[in-house]
């Protein structure tokens, strides 16, 4: 497994050899920072004065911090496919995949290595985002439970995006096709959530299948093992599919 980790670290390092990871992180941080500022402004000038006298006023964590994580999840619907499209499709296009295939590595090691690389990137995204609520600790007290569960939820959500993207990237030679199909799949799951919630057509199954329905409880500070299990199954399922695809390539490709 040591080699899988080495591949992961090398992948992570290579992301920063090109401007892609830098610009993605910069744009994300800028957009989310603006959102954070807007929410803070709203909280200070409108929400707080209006509810200060009520018995149980909403705190800054619920009004500002949780929505920021939700928005981060939504923006990453579009960003994650760009980060995962390269993983296998680009190696195929540049014919560099044979380096890994010729090395004494199993398909499992290759796939886990690649996935670990993208997990490190996700961890960085979540960590940079968490700096924003952390900036508030000098002025107020935060609900640490909600901050923690939101970070964990976002991490799991993005990890599930990445697993789907990794699999779709292993199917094609064109990174752009990998990105478009990943975005399509991720957005399809959002549409499932929306259509499951419509009044005419509400369906528990659709809601259960969509990844956002399992993300929202995290934002309220509810840590439900069934939600965690949903993400783990989603991730493991796509990783196994990717490993199978790589093995199959040697037979059919």
């Amino acid at each position: 497994m040591k080699k899988g980790m080495m591949i992961g670290f090398s992948e992570f390092k290579r992301m920063f050899n090109t401007p892609l990871a830098w610009s993605v992180l910069a744009v994300l941080q800028f957009v989310l920072g603006l959102l954070f500022l807007t929410f803070m402004e709203e909280f200070i000038s409108v929400v707080q004065p209006a509810t200060a006298t009520s018995a149980n006023p909403p705190g800054v964590t619920g009004v500002v911090v949780a929505p920021i994580y939700l928005w981060a999840g939504i923006i990453m619907l579009a960003v994650m496919p760009i980060m995962t499209m390269r993983l296998f499709a680009e190696e195929r296009m540049n014919k560099t995949l044979s380096l890994l295939l010729t090395s004494p590595l199993s398909s499992t090691q290759i796939v886990l290595g690649k996935y670990l690389g993208i997990l490190l990137f996700i961890f960085l995204v979540v960590a940079l985002l968490t700096l924003m609520p952390l900036a508030l600790i000098t002025g107020t007290t935060l609900d640490w439970g909600v901050v923690f569960s939101s970070s964990l939820g976002l991490f799991l959500l993005l990890s599930s995006f990445a697993a789907a993207g990794l699999f779709l990237s292993s199917l094609t030679t064109q990174p752009i096709i990998a990105a478009v199909s990943t975005f399509g799949l991720l957005f399809f799951l959002v549409v499932l959530y929306l259509s499951g919630n419509t009044q005419s057509n509400s369906s528990e199954v659709f809601i259960y299948l969509s990844h956002f329905s399992h993300f929202l409880p995290f934002l309220e500070g509810v840590l439900d093992t069934s939600d965690v299990v949903y993400y783990l199954l989603f991730i493991i399922g796509f990783l196994i599919l990717t490993i199978r695809k790589l093995d199959n390539d040697r037979v059919l490709g």
Binding site: R14, N17, T18, N94, K95, T96, S98, L99, P104, L105
Partner: peptide, 19 residues
Amino acid sequence: KQAKRQIGYLPEQPPVYRD
């Protein structure tokens, strides 16, 4: 895994990472 330890391979297009 064991067999591949003994092999070095240069494909038609060199499998090098440009970055």
